[in-house]
Design a protein around this nucleic acid. Structure first.
Lengths: 114, 114
DNA sequence: CTGATATTCACCCATAAGGATGAATATAGG
DNA sequence: CCTATATTCATCCTTATGGGTGAATATCAG
């Protein structure tokens, strides 16, 4: 299976703290300390969340001296979006088919009634 | 935070076995045994995977006698797709801005050269 | 060199995931 | 009633999350 990347991406997104970190990075690069500031958890815990995000390649790290600047990388979202949209498309077509069936049924009833 | 649903949805999707189960359900309703058949893991393990999918409301159960018919419910995908697409959109606009900057830079260089 | 700052590393803890096995429950079919 | 089938429940094991604390490392500022 070619799904390890997708596994890591979806798992990384399946946590509110990590989604908040990503949202924070939309405002631009940030250091670990900056990212940790709004959260009530320890700096260490945030560091671990960042590690999971890096494993999924959703976050990139640029070291300058003792500071680590993190940035968001949206590329892995493509595969995730593709998978989800494929399932949604399938379901939409299903619903369309159901609607079609209902319309045909309706038409049949009308024909009978006349 | 209103994210428990999203947490469950993304976590449920972050496993190849569960994604395969969903793919299987595209072919229509299936019993637990039917779903477990292609996998090399125990029936019990599959039962647990289904439970996670049900927690995320991605799978619905219809009991008929001793048989449980599972079906796919795409509704939770909407919220997941919305979140991901929002981040992708942000990033796309970013890339557009970068491209714009590069084009302007290019134009400037051309002007200088003439 | 010394002290402060930025991060991680090494552990510890609790809980959950993912797997297995064996027993329990419910129902279908003689 | 009896047996086979469909599924779950109760455990157990291993590994991974998500959190914490304290020490180690690296770098900046005097």
């Amino acid at each position: 299976m070619h799904s390890a990347g997708l596994d890591h991406t979806l798992l990384a997104l399946a946590d509110p703290t990590r989604r908040a970190i990503i949202a924070r990075l939309e405002a631009g690069e940030a250091r670990v300390t900056d990212i940790a500031e709004p959260f009530s958890i320890s700096l260490n815990s945030v560091s671990k969340h960042i590690k999971l995000l890096e494993r999924a390649d959703l976050v990139r790290r640029r070291k300058v001296g003792r500071e680590h600047f993190l940035s968001f990388n949206a590329a892995p979202l493509d595969e995730a979006a593709r998978w989800i949209e494929e399932k949604r498309a399938f379901w939409t077509s299903r619903l369309d088919a159901l609607e079609q069936a209902l319309l045909e049924d309706d038409a049949k009833r009308k024909r009978k009634r006349k």
